[in-house]
Design a protein around this nucleic acid. Structure first.
Lengths: 141, 141
DNA sequence: CGGCAATAGTTAGGTTGCCTAAATATTAGA
DNA sequence: TCTAATATTTAGGCAACCTAACTATTGCCG
């Protein structure tokens, strides 16, 4: 049980540190992190209906719809009724949306570069390995 | 740059997986995660003024005040003017607040136990090490 | 000493992100 | 055919943030 307690102790500390870094890295971007995630999911899933998006992001469909509203208002995305099944609304990224994805992605990678550049090479390597390990293990749960 | 891109790719995936697990583990507790964090901070910092809490949690003082309001409404915490400096409001945990902290902590550790119990011993060990590594490295940033 | 700047909090007003429940539209199936 | 299931939107509500404006107290400089 010793080990479980250690994990229970480390976990929130790490969540907080990671959250702080994520917001540093995302700072100055033209879209909130959640909106970026949504935009990216729409792009990655290739113009998919709302229920798929909601499932993918693990939020209620009404929340997904709301978020799409905001992206539509920003002209990054548009709705289109699926003719094959007129109940379905398929969300498409606009050219501006795709351009913004590329821009933000560049910005994020660049910010990671600046931030992580402060670490010695060896730490960077250890970091990659540890991130991979945790992702692999937690994915089993 | 290869490595930076790998990190930029892994990072959000891990954030998501970790967030999902955190909410699983916290599920059913009588306080939201943020309120629990606030309550715990008040307790750990030993009855401290609002500005310290806001700094510790990295939120605006008005947000901290709001959150304290909610905890006061739940009778987990109370405000008291500091006589040494009457501008300051010191937040104290009530007996009920401290009892709730213990209860939630037990619940969380128990949930981690149930969840992580599904992992082979070796993975648990690797997980602890990886969590420690990441925390240590990211703390340098 | 007197008054102004700094410090500490609260209040007001706004946004995002999330939820449930109710309303609407479309389709599938018994 | 008409009811049940599916897909979405709308309405209403809450938590957690923020900035700006306001109040109260204190410290300090001239």
């Amino acid at each position: 049980m010793e080990r479980i307690e250690r994990i229970a102790q480390l976990y929130p500390v790490l969540m907080r540190v990671m959250g702080r870094i994520r917001s540093t890295v995302h700072d100055g971007m033209d879209l909130s992190y959640n909106q970026y995630k949504m935009l990216l999911t729409i792009y990655d899933k290739g113009n998919c209906p709302l229920n798929v998006l909601a499932g993918e992001l693990n939020i209620a469909m009404s929340s997904a719809s709301e978020m799409v509203d905001r992206l539509v208002n920003l002209s990054l995305v548009y709705r289109a009724v699926d003719d094959a099944n007129r109940r379905r609304v398929v969300i498409h990224t606009t050219a501006a949306g795709e351009e913004l994805i590329r821009e933000i992605r560049r910005g994020i990678v660049s910010n990671y570069g600046i931030l992580l550049g402060r670490l010695p090479d060896e730490d960077q390597e250890r970091l990659v390995n540890a991130l991979e390990t945790i992702t692999e293990i937690l994915d089993k749960l």
